[in-house]
């Protein structure tokens, strides 16, 4: 922009040294965690090369690192996860429907809401003690069984499922409910035919992400005395079960370098791939839903 006027006013310059320095500092802070994690992931991926192969995926554990496999832990994790999904989905959606569609804004509702937020922050090891005392002790599900493991971790992720389902239900526009009531529908008909179908992709996404959290949980399984090493695949709810993170924890304490930098790395990469798959499914569901509206 050209100016043809003589400039007799000088606004001066305000120093931006602090501004620029702060901006760079803040950017560096934002990246430091991401970059560190990326470096660690690269390390473990490189270490897993040669160890993560078909034999590893399809064999039971073995004291010889070159024979050791991950199959029972992999199958155990998936079995636990499926059972968790069966438990948390109906209960979580039910609770969310109640809180969003039925409950008034009274004291009880606020108490339930506060309680759910608080439960989401209870350390997982404490849930382990709940499982040990309630499911193993009182209800006799047995030490380290599929059933005990699934119920314990299900209670742990239930608050997350409820909160995300509530958000999905809240996102359904009120005009949709009004339209349904205007047609003479009852509350239940409105929920079943209008609210839930519309909220379902969001609920699914939230639940699947919560299952991703569940599959990485270790401490609760330790507390309910899930066996650290299992050689067979679980074939019933009462079977003793191991899980991927638990097997990783066990192997990480082996002193041999072949375990520390080989077998465990392969286990970690397997766990992360399963986790990535689960999260990708959630994202695909969310994106497909976003395209439709």
């Amino acid at each position: 922009m050209a100016t043809d006027t003589p400039t007799d006013t000088d606004f001066g310059q305000v120093s931006r040294t602090k501004d620029v320095a702060f901006r760079l500092l803040a950017l560096a802070a934002t990246l430091v965690g991401i970059v560190s994690l990326a470096a660690l992931l690269a390390n473990v991926a490189v270490d897993a090369v040669g160890w993560l192969n078909w034999g590893f995926i399809t064999s039971p554990p073995h004291p010889d690192p070159y024979e050791a496999g991950f199959l029972p832990a992999l199958v155990g994790s998936i079995a636990i996860m499926l059972l968790i999904a069966l438990i948390t989905f109906p209960v979580g959606v039910g609770a969310a429907v109640y809180l969003e569609e039925y409950a008034n804004d009274g004291l009880l509702t606020r108490f339930i809401q506060l309680n759910i937020a608080n439960l989401a922050g209870v350390p997982s090891v404490v849930y382990g003690l709940l499982g040990l005392g309630l499911f193993v002790g009182l209800l006799g599900f047995g030490y380290g069984t599929v059933l005990a493991a699934a119920f314990t971790v299900a209670l742990l992720i239930l608050p997350i499922v409820i909160i995300s389902a509530q958000e999905a239900i809240r996102a359904v526009p009120d005009s949709q409910r009004q339209a349904s009531y205007g047609m003479g529908a009852t509350k239940w008909q409105t929920i079943r035919n209008v609210v839930l179908p519309r909220a379902m992709p969001g609920i699914m996404t939230g639940t699947i992400l919560a299952l991703g959290r569940a599959i990485g949980e270790t401490a609760p399984l330790i507390m309910i005395a899930a066996p650290t090493t299992v050689f067979g695949i679980p074939n019933s709810f009462e079977s003793k079960v191991s899980a991927m993170p638990l097997q990783i924890y066990t192997w990480a304490s082996y002193p041999e370098t072949e375990f520390q930098y080989g077998v465990v790395a392969a286990g970690v990469v397997t766990l992360l791939i399963v986790l990535l798959t689960i999260n990708s499914i959630a994202i695909v569901i969310r994106n497909r839903y976003q395209q439709r509206t």
Partner: peptide, 25 residues
């Protein structure tokens, strides 16, 4: 922005004008 906004003889959209300094006036 196109054109000029002249403050006391100085176009405030000149490249050498610091908007932060300008706002102080």
């Amino acid at each position: 922005v196109d054109g000029e906004l002249v403050f006391d003889g100085k176009n405030v959209y000149d490249d050498d004008v610091d908007p932060v300094a300008l706002r102080r006036k």
